Amino acid sequence: TRVETATETAWISLVTALHLVLGLSAVLGLLLLRWQFPAHYRRLRHALW
């Protein structure tokens, strides 16, 4: 049971790290898009909202 718990903890930390990385890359990508294509971003936002 001790090994299982350790594996579970490792998986949880791995998944958390993955989610953090994905979230950060998504935010960075959005910022980059907004910085590179302001007109396109505004049009996209206008279409979405």
Rank of each mutant, 00 (worst) to 15 (best):
E4G: 05
A17N: 00
L30G: 12
L24P: 04
G23M: 15
T9Q: 12
S13W: 15
W35N: 08
V27A: 08
H19A: 15
A17G: 09
T5S: 02
A17K: 05
R34N: 05
L18K: 04
L44F: 15
V27H: 00
A39C: 04
P38K: 15
A47I: 12
A26K: 00
T16G: 05
L14K: 02
V27C: 09
T1L: 14
L24M: 11
T7A: 15
F37A: 06
L48S: 04
T16N: 04
T7M: 15
L48H: 08
L33V: 10
T7R: 08
L20G: 07
R43F: 07
F37D: 04
H46F: 06
W49R: 05
L22P: 03
L22D: 08
Y41I: 14
F37N: 06
A17P: 07
L20K: 04
L22E: 01
A17W: 03
E8P: 08
S13K: 05
L32D: 03
S13F: 13
A47W: 10
T1W: 07
E4T: 10
W11I: 13
L22I: 13
T5C: 02
G29C: 13
W35Y: 08
F37G: 02
V27T: 09
A47R: 14
R43D: 06
R43K: 14
L31M: 14
R2D: 14
V27N: 01
A47C: 08
V27K: 04
R34W: 04
L44C: 10
R42F: 06
L33N: 00
R45K: 15
L28W: 08
R45I: 08
P38T: 11
L31N: 02
L31P: 03
L44A: 12
T5W: 02
W11R: 03
R45W: 05
L22F: 07
V21Y: 02
R2N: 15
L18A: 04
L44D: 01
H40C: 13
S13C: 10
L44Q: 03
V21F: 12
S25L: 11
L32F: 09
L20A: 12
H19V: 15
V27I: 14
H46I: 07
V15K: 08
V21C: 13
F37K: 03
W11N: 05
L20S: 07
Q36W: 10
W49Q: 06
E8M: 00
L24W: 03
E4F: 08
L48A: 09
R42C: 09
V3S: 00
L32N: 01
R43N: 13
L32H: 06
E4P: 03
W35F: 14
L48Q: 06
L44E: 03
R2A: 13
H46V: 08
R43A: 08
G29E: 02
R42G: 12
L28I: 05
A10N: 05
S13L: 07
L33I: 12
L30Q: 04
L33F: 11
R42D: 10
R42V: 09
V15L: 13
L33H: 01
R42W: 07
I12H: 07
H40K: 15
A26H: 04
T16V: 15
A39T: 11
H40W: 11
T9D: 13
R43I: 09
R45S: 07
S25T: 11
L22Q: 03
S25N: 04
S13D: 00
V3Q: 01
H40F: 14
L14N: 05
V15G: 01
T5D: 01
V21A: 13
W49V: 02
L31V: 12
L18M: 10
T7I: 09
P38C: 10
S13H: 05
L31F: 14
A10I: 08
A10G: 11
L33P: 05
A47K: 12
R45L: 08
L20V: 15
S13I: 08
L24R: 01
H40Y: 12
H46N: 14
R34G: 07
H19I: 15
V3G: 00
T5P: 01
A26W: 10
A26C: 11
Q36M: 11
A39H: 12
V3N: 01
L14E: 03
R34M: 10
R34Y: 09
H40P: 10
R45C: 07
